[in-house]
Design a binder for these strands. Sequence first.
DNA 1: TTCCAACCAATGTGATCACATTGTTGCTAA
DNA 2: TTAGCAACAATGTGATCACATTGGTTGGAA
Lengths: 243, 243
Amino acid sequence: MKYLANPRLSNFTHLQAMLIKPYPSWELPELPHATHTTAQEYAYERLRFAIMVGGVPPGAALTIRGVADALSLSSTPVRETLRRLCAEGALFSQSNRRIITPPMTTARHQELISTRVALEQLAVRRAARFITENDLEILTNIDLQMDQAIVQQNYIQLVILNQQFHSTLYALNPEQVCLPMIESVWLQLGPFNRLAAERAGQLTLEDQHKNLLTALRKRDTEAASQAVEADIRDAADQASAAQ
Amino acid sequence: MKYLANPRLSNFTHLQAMLIKPYPSWELPELPHATHTTAQEYAYERLRFAIMVGGVPPGAALTIRGVADALSLSSTPVRETLRRLCAEGALFSQSNRRIITPPMTTARHQELISTRVALEQLAVRRAARFITENDLEILTNIDLQMDQAIVQQNYIQLVILNQQFHSTLYALNPEQVCLPMIESVWLQLGPFNRLAAERAGQLTLEDQHKNLLTALRKRDTEAASQAVEADIRDAADQASAAQ
DNA sequence: TTCCAACCAATGTGATCACATTGTTGCTAA
DNA sequence: TTAGCAACAATGTGATCACATTGGTTGGAA
């Protein structure tokens, strides 16, 4: 089940194929197959998720044939998936036409965190005025689920719920311009998050969500914006401390 | 030279094919063919440019076969190009698998402007510390060329130079995270810019570049950030006033 | 031993075709 | 007249193959 490039060519070690095969070791609910209308979408969801949770090591080279074989697809939908992920910043297309995951550096990490703060502060400011009591209830519910995931030390579930929390909030704005960009940043931060979760013992990033919810209930946009920044910086500090 | 969908299916009128054919009426230097190593890249550059300068009307449906015929290519590279542009926000993939240019609304325009301000302010702040005297000279030179383009009422050239000015500045930061996102916003603003240029008689957005250059020379990051915002808002106001 | 060129394997690219899906038209029957 | 269905046209999707490019290996000459 090899899907990375020939190691002789890419000089990177093989990756355990667990993220390309169905996700047994990740305790992940299999996505219902009916949601994937096309093979390309299926391949995209699989690869995107793998990258999002840091399942593909930085600098690894992906090959079209390799991924196609791993997913039992032909090369056409896989090629489109890889290009799409390149356009989203999740992968990087080298000049020699090889597609790799972006290398990981601290400078790049800082750049990504700054961008994430700028975009998410903007998003929360522009979404706050649309929020209803019902929305607050939904967000509170997600936050409670996150508490459970922390207790269970379920990292994958925590990452998913955290992103669900943020994107649910930002998506209250009917004109969605920055959410795709925020998701692009999340994708690029995937390897860093993974590193943080692997090396850090504790998972403690729920407090700022409580602050954020309090601010949103008071319709205090400024406090909400500050809580978003604090939440992001907390998570980033955790990743840095883990190194 | 039809490249839009069958009007019966898309209920949009045909577009003059001038932006898909070589750009005679746009007074554009033909891009040297050597720069396009692959057919996909060629198709991408062509379509991207057409969208960037507002050459494709909002809501128009593009078909794979249509674009492929117009560019004398097979469908494979065109399909990848269309998906890539969808991922960049320049196009929108409907649920019925039809690919259209995003519709134009004032709410969306405001959202794009806000995002542009947030991203470009961040970019200039993080690029300013890297600037050298040589860079300042290059930027001043581009600004002078813009003055010429304004005198010549050459809208296309002005758009290109304006983006060149901004991206040259932001690219001084070696870790490039937000420049692709900024370019995505530019792509999405293409139709609006076009509208502004068509309906507005005057082209007056160079003053803020002078302010920005002054601030950069003084290494005054805060003033530079404000000049960037003023520049963007000026251009946006022009587009709004044109409606 | 070192270097280079020829060769081979791995991989990306693009064209083409068959098929699935979607949209339109027009005819039939209530 | 109009709802509904059948036929057809337009388009998207995916598999496959030939070819180009790239990376690595090997063997011989300096």
